[in-house]
Design a protein around this nucleic acid. Sequence first.
RNA 1: GCCGGGGUAGCUCAGUCGGUAGAGCAGGGGACUGAAAAUCCCCGUGUCGGCAGUUCAACUCUGUCCCCCGGCA
Length: 307
Amino acid sequence: MKDLSLICLVGATGTGKTAAALALATALGGGVVNFDSRQVYAGLGVVTAQPTPAERAVCPHALYGYLAIDTPVRAGAFAGEILARARAYREQGLAPILVGGTGLYLKSLVDGLAPIPDIDPGIREGVINECRALGSQVLHGRLQLVDPDYAAKIHPNDPQRICRALEVFTATGRTLTWWHGQTRRPAGLRVLKIGLAADLPALTPRLARRIELMLDAGALEEVRLAFEQCPDRRAPGFSGIGCPELLGVLLDGLGLEQARREWLHSTRAYAKRQLTWFHKDGEIAWHEAGDVAGIVARAAAFLESDS
RNA sequence: GCCGGGGUAGCUCAGUCGGUAGAGCAGGGGACUGAAAAUCCCCGUGUCGGCAGUUCAACUCUGUCCCCCGGCA
């Protein structure tokens, strides 16, 4: 069976991935699949910068705005979903173009993920509650006893990773270190990663402008309606940058100016984390965002070498 | 002009009994295996407003000048 060829567009938030994806899809006859963790939520299309209806009309789009705000995304399941959509596109004769900013999700898909079974929610909650009650340092101490290797890799102040390691051990009787050793890179994939280059100083004014465009496009009203549907600020969908700030305006009387500032600050910090992640990935071919011709040429050559 | 209160990191400020200084925020760097737009880690030399004096030693005490903020004229 022929390998599945995936063109993956990565880059920090606001670097122009959406536009580049449309250009690629048009030039190559492709379909777009989202691998961004926040653009999956319905009713938050503006704040999460999902492609607009007009943009989606240009070519097929998958996995945008299809989840309720209170539904969590799971990396493993989501990666499987992305692959299924990519295969479906190929069967239709379309080149799958994966677009997103969530480095972990792309990595899960390309490099594989440890085959850990789903963890019983009760166990998970128990660990989290204990962590809240005792503090992450205490649980880190426990983790040192069962999985010293992993405990050494993570910091005692990192509740999220400590809880994950403990819930996996409690539920499966195996350590996370052992599970990680079971990771296999999926066979049958050919992957081209194209990165849209950006540095923070150049990106910052664009991010500020984008916030204004989102506000003009009705971001505040969008979040107001979304909160009416799902009145829980801690719902996974509301962790998207911009939501806490706008909910602050709507619910806490936060000034719009202050909200803008905080929104930009979080966006910038996020972009920086993304750059750190992607720069470390040696498989990425970097292009200037405006270099549409170069991007298309590279992708075309990649598909060419497929046959 | 007089009386208070101040001038210390980009910003807001702390600094004990004289021993040349440290927090928060901002900023920078990094980690990352099912919460990832999440979670977490690391990074602080700056004419201590200027000048002079006392002292082995001054951000710290004294004098003087400059600037800012209140109050009174």
